[in-house]
Amino acid sequence: MPIKIPDDLPARGTLEAEGIVVMRETDAIRQDIRPLRIGLLNLMPNKISTETQIARLLGATPLQIELTLVRITDHVPRNTSADHLATFYRPWSEVRTDRFDGFIITGAPVERMPFEAVRYWPELQSILDWTQTHVHGCLTICWAAQAALYHFHGVPKHELPQKAFGIFRHRNLAPASPYLRGFADSFDIPVSRWTEVRAADLPSGSGLEVLGASDDTGLCLVSDAQRRSLHIFNHFEYDTTTLADEYARDGAGQIPANYFPGNEPSSAPENQWRGHAHLLFGNWINQIYQTTPFDLAAIGRG
C-alpha cells in the first residue's frame, strides 16, 4: 500500500523513482479505509534526506500511511530553507491537539550537550509527555531515544572516548518480540554517535526490555511497553551513502568501521542493512495497526 505525502515534497520524486507507491490526496479519499496517521518530528540537520529515508520505509509497509511533518515550534534550523519548512512542516504548537496512531522523533546533532542545555529541551519534554496522551505508538531514534529514556526513567547518557561510527553486528536478544519478527539472529546496522546509554543504567522494574545490542557499540533497541514506545539508538533508516557523506562532512577523519570495502574510502560501500530496516519499520507499523483504536479520538484514553 502507498504512503500519502504532499504532492510537491522533494521526497516524492525520489520514492517514485525507487518504485515506492506514493498516493495523491484525491486517490486516498476514494479508498474506504482509515489511513494510519504517522507524525514525524524531524530534528536532523538535513531534513529533506531524513524525510525521504523515513518515508521510504513507511511507504513500503502494506498499509496506507498519512505522514505529517512536524517541527519544534520556535527553533529555526540552519540547514533547511524557510520556504521548505513553511510549505511542508507544521509546528508542534499547531498539532498538539491532534492524535496520531504513530509518532517518530529523530536524532539531533546535540548529543554531546547536557539535555537541559538544548534550547528546545522544554518543548521536547512536553512533546514526550504529549505522546502518552495523544499518540498510540512512539518511535524514537538516536539522540531522541536517549532523551526519552532520560526524561521518563532518568537514564543518563555517557560520552564515548571515540565516536561509534560504522556498520556493526548486533545480536537479536528478543526473537519473540513483535518488533523483531523475521529478524536474523544477528544483523548489521549503521551506528553514528558520540554518546551511549548503558544497559546497567536501565532501572529494574521499569519494564524496559533490551531487544538488540552489539558487543562493540552497546544497546541498539529498547522497548518500553508501558509507554508504547520503541527506542532505537542507531540508524536503520540510513541510505547506503549516508555514512560516507558524514565522513566527508567531518573532514575525512575517522573512517567508518566495516563500511568501505577494504577500508578504502574511494571504494563504493554496499548496503548491508536495508532488509532489516524494512522489517523493523514494517513490524512497528503492523503492531500499531493491530492495536490502535479505529476512532482517532479514542487514542490516549486508556
Rank of each mutant, 00 (worst) to 15 (best):
S81T: 04
N79D: 14
F260L: 05
T80R: 15
V222G: 06
W121C: 00
R78Y: 15
G212S: 14
G182Q: 08
V222T: 06
Q272N: 08
R181W: 06
G102S: 03
V22P: 00
L173G: 07
A28R: 13
Y289W: 12
H170M: 04
H84T: 11
P10W: 07
L57E: 03
P122N: 06
N172W: 09
D185T: 13
M113V: 05
A148R: 04
T68H: 13
E237P: 05
S126L: 14
Y259T: 01
S266V: 12
G212E: 06
E25H: 15
R37P: 11
L221K: 03
N79S: 12
V197L: 15
R119E: 15
E16K: 10
Q125A: 13
P109C: 02
L69G: 05
A108N: 03
R56Q: 03
G262W: 06
Q287G: 05
L280N: 02
A248W: 11
G154I: 01
P265A: 00
A108I: 02
E116Y: 01
T291A: 10
S126C: 14
R198C: 12
V110G: 06
C220H: 14
E111T: 10
R227P: 02
A147Y: 07
R56N: 03
P109T: 00
D98S: 13
I104E: 01
P114G: 02
R169W: 10
T242E: 02
V197G: 12
L85N: 10
A147K: 02
A55K: 03
P156W: 10
I285E: 08
D101A: 10
D74S: 14
L43R: 07
R30C: 10
G13P: 09
A117P: 10
T50R: 02
R228K: 06
L128M: 06
K47S: 05
I65R: 11
H75P: 12
L15K: 04
I29K: 15
F294S: 13
L149Q: 05
H136R: 03
H134Y: 12
K157Y: 15
T61H: 14
W121I: 00
I189L: 07
N79W: 14
S81V: 00
